[in-house]
Amino acid sequence: MKPVLLLLAALLLVMTAACGQNSGKGKDALTTVKFSEVIRSIFYAPHYVAMSQGFFEKQGLNVDMNTAQGSDKGAAALIAGTADISLVGPETTIYIYNQKGEKTLKAFHQLTAKDGSFLLSREKLDAFAWSDLAGKTVIGWRPGSSPQMVLNSVLLKEKVEGVNVVTNIASTAMAGAFTSGQGDYIQVFEPVASTLVKEGKAYLVASLGDFGDYPETSYVATSDYIKAHPDIIQKFTAAVAEGAKWLNTATDDDIVKALKPFFDGTPDDLILQSVNRYKAQGTWPTEPVLTQAQFDILQNVLVENGVLKAEDKVTNMDDVVDMSFVQKLGKTD
């Protein structure tokens, strides 16, 4: 009987080992990445697709996501070590670099190539011109944020003066403030824009994406984290890139199904409309690279908005940008 018992024990060990190998595909075997997104918006659809379609898990990553409600908070989380990777405005890398502190940040994947906000009016207009904003109140974003700076740059370009842009309302409270009667206009992202329009509480008058090429949102990490975990950065980049590629070929039903868990309560038609609106304005570049030309545009906008002195421009983009991981896409297994 002993040989039989030994054989059974051996078989049990083999089965246990096999089960252990299979369980390696579970979450316990994945590397957890603490991730902070700037706000929740369909503007960042490729990321949510990468989560819902299992593209991160395929790369061996478990993304633990929270919403910072501001690029400043997302950058602070990186410095404090409470986030490994943040989706924020790349201008944060410049701000931190110029502080000459112990830590620096680097953008390693350019997710969006346009501003993602839309301007809505309280009253229905037969036609809209930027000059209509003179003497009006716009519920906008915090000072120094990308949407606030893009709007201000548009107003400067159009030579519109006397606009009262309210910048002290929390992003989560902006829509509520508008619907309660504050402001003549509001600047919001999708799906909030489409929701307000569908509810008859606002009218779409302009897209700030028409401002032109603008590297609004990047994946950013500390230089130390990138140096210590290049494999994680590469896998993270690959997963998001796959999410963006999937969006271009998926059916409408599949897109809605993929994004629905992240926008509970938003009607299916508004989810799809938001995605198509962002697609139409070229929001998600096929090559998610932050180029020198885009970096120059970014710094010029910062100077124009008075948040960066011309003499404090970062002369060597590589000090705050590392696109090597994006450039390896399709060249690694």
Rank of each mutant, 00 (worst) to 15 (best):
N98F: 10
N98W: 08
N98C: 11
G101N: 04
G101T: 03
G101I: 03
E102M: 01
E102C: 00
K103P: 09
K103S: 12
L105Q: 08
L105A: 14
H109N: 14
Q110V: 03
L111K: 02
T112D: 02
T112N: 05
K114R: 15
F118S: 01
L120R: 08
L120V: 04
S121W: 15
E123H: 12
A127Y: 02
A127F: 05
A129R: 15
L133K: 09
A134V: 08
G135K: 05
K136M: 00
G140K: 10
W141R: 11
W141A: 12
R142L: 06
P143W: 13
P143M: 13
G144E: 10
Q148W: 04
L151N: 12
N152G: 07
S153Y: 07
S153Q: 03
L155T: 10
E158W: 00
K159Y: 14
E161D: 14
E161L: 13
E161R: 09
G162L: 02
V163G: 07
N164F: 02
N168G: 06
N168P: 07
A170L: 09
A170V: 04
T172F: 13
A173L: 11
M174F: 05
A175I: 10
A175E: 04
G176C: 10
F178V: 09
T179N: 06
T179I: 10
S180A: 14
S180L: 12
G181P: 04
Q182Y: 10
G183Q: 12
Q187H: 15
F189Y: 15
V192E: 13
A193G: 03
A193S: 08
L196R: 08
E199C: 03
E199G: 08
G200F: 08
A202N: 11
A202M: 04
Y203S: 13
Y203A: 05
L208V: 06
L208M: 08
G209K: 08
F211G: 13
D213K: 14
Y214W: 04
E216G: 13
V220W: 01
